[in-house]
Every structure is written in C-alpha cells, then in structure tokens.
Amino acid sequence: MALITLVAGARPNFMKIAPIIHQLLASMDSLPNLKYRLVHTGQHYDQKMSGDFFEQLHIPSPHVNLGAGGGSQAEQTAAVMLAFEKELIANRPALVIVVGDVTSTLACTITAKKLLIDVAHVEGGIRSGDMTMPEEINRIVTDSITDHFFTTSKLANDNLISSGVPQEKIHLVGNTMIDTLIANQPRFSRPEGEVFDRLEKRKYFVLTMHRPANVDQQEKLKAMIDAIMMVTASMPVIFPVHPRTATNMRELGISYPSLHMVDPLGYLEFNYLVENAFAVITDSGGITEEASVMNVPCLTLRDNTERPETITLGTNELVGTNPDNLKPFLQKLMKGEWKSYQGIPLWDGNAARRIVDKVIELYI
C-alpha cells in the first residue's frame, strides 16, 4: 500500500489541497493500493478560517487535527513539528505533500525529511525576493530539501533550476487554487446581510489587508485607508477584517460612510464579491491569482510579488506600500483603461489531475 499524506494548515492551503483530494479519491477507485491521509495542523483554527472551508469545498474531514494553532511563529513551528513527527511515526507514508508557503509547510517538510520521507511541494519555486516576509523564508527552506516540485509557472521552474534543482524533479502542472476557483465558480453565493443586498454589480470595491507591514503600524494603516477612501469615488468599499486589524481600526477611529467592515467570509461568499466587484485592492498573493482569472482589476499594496505572471498576463498591478502611489492607478481604473486577463498557461482547472498522475507514476 502507498500512503500519501497531505498537509493543510491555513486558509490558502485548503483551496490548494481540495482538488488534489478530489483527484486522489477518484483515482483510488481503480488503484486499491493508493491511500491518502489528510493532516490539518490546526495553524488556523477560527471557524471561518478553517472549518467552513472543508464544508464549502467538499473536503472530507481531516484524519487528524494536530491542534498547533496560536503562539509566535517559532512556537507554532515547534508545535507543528512535535505533533507531526508523532503522526508520521504512527502512519508512515510514501510521500508527504505540502502546499504553499505557510508555517505548516516549512515545519512539516523539515519533520518529514528528518524521518527520511519524501516530500513534494505544490507551488514550489515561487519567489518574491523579499526576505522580510516569513513566507519567503518558508519557501526557500522548503524548496532546499524537497524531493519533487509541482510548479505553477515557467518562472518558478527557472528559479528552481538556477538554485541547482535537477530538471527531472520539477513538474510544471498549473495552479490548484485555480482548479478550486473554476470548480466552484457556479456555486458562488451572495453573502447574507443588508450591506451586501445593496451592492450593485461592478459598482463596489473589495479590500483585503492582512500583512503586518500594512496593518500593525497604526499610522500607516490610517494613511492607507484614508488614501483608499479618497480615491474610490464614494463607491462602497467592502473590507472583510481580521480581528486584530479591526481592533486597530477602532482605536484609530477610522470611519467612512462608504467603508463597510465585515466579518471574514466563507470561500463561496468572498469570491462572489470579487467576481462582481469593480476592482480589488489587496496585499494577498492568492487573491491576485483569483482576480486575474476572473478578469477583475487588482491593485496590490506590496512592493514585490511572488506571482509576476498576474502582472504580465493577469489584471494585477503592484501599487506599493506608499499610500501616495494609489491615486494614478485609481485614475487609470476610473477611466476604463485597465488591462484584461490574457490567460496564464496551464491555469485551466486540471493542475490536480497532473499532480496525481505524476504521484501515481512515481510512487504507486
């Protein structure tokens, strides 16, 4: 029997891992030796950040939840490693599949490799070049010891090759997050509530900010919100807010009639808002991918990106972290001069099938 262990820990992981699980389940019908085990590290334990995703994306319940949420990054890394080591000793797989670039990705990769278990990294090879981001450190360390890489773009392949990874370990498959988007797009649903009932298609913005550089420094947060509200032409701005950011907003007394701070939304509800928005303003990498494929203008509040294909072929532009940079981008948007989605190779909804086909070839 070949056991494949899949690791999910934070909200983006669930979107990336769901189609792989669905494809494994489909393949198990004809391959009785193929088994999988889903490990939820518990890195995100809020219901909206975790539980709802399993229900909405039709992911079977995890075989185990390691309960390693909370604490500093070092504490969380240690907690995941301690718990995952016990899991691997009790249920030793042929392969561990990790996704993305969160703390769980790094911690589980190190733990598996020290037990001499192969690791495959979904989204291997992406780089921002920004070592101030914990995610960049996670990517580099994970990729330095991984056995197989499932990549989203040729640029990711090039990054790996330039770091000395043999070509035969690199597999260009596409983007499993887009698999999830395409599969669930017909099920997107308007969130419940008076705020959402009043929204008109293409006449509101969706705003997300979560990176510490943008939300933890109160003066910078206020300057960014003020700049956004000055240039959004009184259109409603829907801002699903992390509790920590909400606290900072309240302490700063930030309030605008057209700014609607709402609780975090489920996957189907949030992407309904994105699909129908005039534009998205965000500091999230994953949202730039989804907005591009849905051909929704996207303004990224970062100085760099690990997903440059969303700029060259998608609808994304790097605004930067200086609030003064926003105005010319918004003026271009208001004039109807924004670029359209050009199509990114292999972002076609079939990445998980390519991944599972390669896993079967290598391990079954």
Rank of each mutant, 00 (worst) to 15 (best):
M177Q: 14
P345T: 12
F270R: 13
T282A: 03
S72M: 00
I117V: 13
T103E: 09
F149R: 02
F54D: 01
Y341K: 05
A291I: 01
I254L: 15
E135F: 01
Y272M: 08
E289G: 04
L160I: 00
I225M: 14
L273H: 13
F188H: 15
M249S: 14
L82K: 08
W347F: 04
E317Y: 02
M249F: 15
I117P: 08
K16V: 11
I161Q: 15
K113L: 08
G69C: 11
D303M: 10
K327G: 07
H171L: 06
M177V: 15
M28N: 05
T111V: 01
L252Q: 08
T247S: 15
D29A: 12
I344E: 04
P19L: 04
G286V: 09
K169N: 07
H171N: 11
E55N: 12
A227H: 07
N184F: 15
F239V: 14
S27Y: 04
S153W: 00
T111G: 00
E337W: 03
H121I: 00
A246R: 15
A279C: 10
A227F: 08
A156H: 00
L34I: 04
L333T: 06
M334P: 01
V195D: 08
M294C: 04
L38M: 06
A79T: 00
A8Q: 06
G129L: 00
I364E: 14
I238V: 15
N13T: 04
H210Y: 01
G124L: 02
T152F: 02
T180F: 09
I97N: 08
A291N: 01
T105L: 04
K327F: 10
I126A: 00
E75Y: 01
N295Y: 05
T312H: 07
D216W: 09
I360A: 11
S340L: 03
E200A: 15
D226T: 12
K154T: 08
K327P: 04
I170G: 01
F14E: 07
M177W: 13
M229N: 12
I287G: 06
L155R: 00
P257T: 09
A107T: 05
A10M: 10
P328E: 03
T176P: 06
L116T: 13
N304S: 12
M49C: 11
D29E: 13
Y363F: 12
L207A: 02
K203D: 10
L207F: 05
D29H: 11
L172R: 10
I182V: 14
F239L: 14
G266A: 13
P243Q: 09
P12W: 06
S163R: 13
L181F: 13
T151H: 02
L3R: 03
L268A: 09
E289L: 05
L116E: 15
P186Q: 14
Q47P: 08
N65H: 11
A213W: 09
D226M: 07
D324H: 09
Y204A: 02
E168W: 10
N159Y: 02
T247A: 14
P243V: 08
L199R: 05
N138D: 03
S284G: 07
V7H: 09
A94L: 10
N184R: 14
S284C: 05
M28D: 05
K220S: 10
M209T: 05
